[in-house]
Each structure stands twice: as C-alpha cells, then as structure tokens.
Amino acid sequence: MASAVKYGGQILVYAVIAAVLGYFSASPAFRHFPEDMALIKLAFAHGAKPKGKCRTLSAKEIAALPPNMRRPKICPRERLPVFVELELNGELIYRKALPPTGLHGDGPARVYEGFPVPAGRHALVVRLRDSDRSEGFDYVRATDVTLEPARKFVVDFRSELGGFIFK
C-alpha cells in the first residue's frame, strides 16, 4: 500500500512537470499585433549622391599618386543624407533626413520603420530626395491601397528599378 502511494505520488509529480512543460511550451498566446490593423513597412537602404562634386585631377597631381592609385577624377567620399516623407490619407506620418552610415559617412542611408494603420482603404504618398537640391524630391510615388487586417504593405526603394516599390 505504501509503495502504491509512493508510485502514485511520483506519477503525480511527473504529471505536474509535464503539465508545466506542455502548457508553457505554447501558451499563453501572445498578441503581438492588434486585431483589425494592418502594417505599412517603410524599409530600404539607399546611398544618396556624394556630398560635393568630383574634380578632375591635373597631370601633375595624377603623377604624384602611387601608380596603382592613379585616376583622372577624385570624388568626395561622404554622402548626402536621404530625405524621406511618407504621407497617409493626406497626413504626413513620417518625415526624416536619414544620415549615411559608415565611419566616413559613405554608406547607404537606412530606414526600417513600421506604421500600424487601421485595415481599409488608404491613400499613400512617399517622397525621397537624395541629391543636393534644396526643394522638391527626386522620387515620388503615390497609390491607393486596400489593406486587410494583418496585411503587411512594404514600401521599398531601388533606384536601379526606378524608385519606390510597393509590395
């Protein structure tokens, strides 16, 4: 009888451990994103134009360079910031000058931002300036999009493909 109680107790202990393992291995569920919302993701990496103009080297300057480094032009290494605006339903929800990355400021500017929006139809306009112009934008794209709940709408940018890409 005593051994039956002991074995029963052991089974109970194992059952409790199993219940803890089984339950917390997938529960309680966690709500990561609100119901009836969609997500607009603005995410790209883009290098703006160099900060300053390239200059043609004189023959004397070229000759002064080591043979393996001789080139006709010298360009500034640092890049301009990339200026981005995101407008949703006529309201500006994002506006930022993205600095170039890298120790010398010669890397691409990066953005990775998410904007939860109510599911439904939205008018979206994105603008980007990557040159030294003081006004206006080098790239603009607008769209009307209907977003279902939990839909992720990606706004990417590839200058080699012509500018903004909506996915």
Binding site: G22, F24, S25, A26, S27, A29, F30, R31, H32, F33, P34, E35, A38, L39, P149, A150, R151, K152, K167
Partner: peptide, 25 residues
C-alpha cells in the same frame, strides 16, 4: 503522445503575425 508539438501555420511574410503561441521557456 498526449499533447504533440505542432506548427502554427506556414509563415507568410505578406502578413503580420497577430497572435502567436510562445514557448515561454
């Protein structure tokens, strides 16, 4: 055997994961 581990539906990068069953350990 009683409570087998199962997946939570295929990943779909065009959507956001709203509710997820976390392994809290």
């Amino acid at each position: 055997l009683v409570y087998p581990a199962v997946s939570q539906g295929p990943a779909d990068l065009s959507t956001v994961v709203s509710v997820v069953g976390l392994d809290w350990f």
